[in-house]
């Protein structure tokens, strides 16, 4: 059993070693050029760099076009500027890398939560319209069937909105943004500020409306409901604008 296991290991190692090359060729979709022979290329580079022997040997199969760095290292080992830093000269900063990864993760979450919030807000508006028609419109049935559903959807919207804001506001910024005036991000922020103002207004209106209801003031209640309705539409409009600016 000893030898079959060893040969299996050799075959597996070989297969795993070849896999990256197969995958890379598939990803790149690069054809081997018919204009340039690898041996000729290596010889030319070697002559130009004054290192004829070693590089010419490298042309035996290591400089085929379509390969990545691992297969072509040293094949164009020249620097016409004389001061280009080598890759290895710059050490990665682990803290910077961590911040970049955290930022990407948080902003991806922000996107998902933001679109979810928009969906919840749209649901709240639909339920709110149905609730308004039921309770305050002329001819409304006054059943209160949509009251709880509207309330639940607005609470969910508020929670999702706060969560979305959290993942944006607390994302680290390892690379500061250049100030270039008005751009998509600025438009997004304007939309979000409008939506935030709308959310705060809705919460305040909730208390005021409750007070009007407690005071038995039907006219004041209807007026509050109308303002609540208008602010609700404006809020979801700002939110939709904040999301859709990324599309344009």
């Amino acid at each position: 059993m000893k030898y079959p296991v060893r040969w299996f290991g050799v075959l597996l190692s070989g297969a795993l070693g070849l896999c990256p090359l197969v995958v890379r060729a598939d990803v790149l979709h690069l054809d081997v050029p018919d204009r340039l022979d690898a041996r000729e290329l290596a010889r030319f580079v070697a002559e130009a760099d004054g290192a004829s022997g070693a590089a010419a040997d490298a042309g035996d199969g290591n400089t085929d076009a379509g390969s990545t760095s691992s297969a072509t290292a040293g094949s164009m080992d020249f620097d016409l500027f004389g001061d280009t830093p080598a890759k290895a000269d710059v050490a990665p900063d682990p803290e910077f890398v961590r911040q970049v990864e955290q930022r990407r993760s948080m902003l991806q979450t922000h996107q998902i939560l933001g679109l979810s919030t928009l969906g919840l807000m749209a649901t709240s508006v639909v339920l709110g319209q149905l609730n308004y028609g039921d309770l305050y419109a002329h001819g409304g049935a006054h059943t209160g069937d949509f009251l709880v559903a509207h309330r639940v959807s607005t609470y969910a919207s508020t929670g999702a909105f706060l969560g979305t804001a959290f993942f944006s506001l607390f994302a680290p910024t390892p690379i500061p943004k250049d100030g270039e005036g008005f751009d998509t991000t600025m438009a997004h922020k304007i939309g979000v500020i409008g939506a935030s103002a709308g959310m705060v207004t809705q919460v305040a209106l909730g208390f005021l409306t409750a007070r009007a209801a407690d005071a038995g003031n039907p006219d004041g209640l209807r007026r509050m409901a109308q303002i609540h309705q208008a602010v609700g539409y404006a809020t979801v409009g700002f939110m939709a604008a904040a999301a859709s600016v990324w599309v344009f």
Binding site: V97, D178, T184
Partner: peptide
């Protein structure tokens, strides 16, 4: 500017 800053992050410009 936001996209350019994001590109620097993606490309690990540092």
């Amino acid at each position: 500017g936001n996209r350019d800053a994001h590109a620097l992050e993606v490309l690990d410009a540092a």
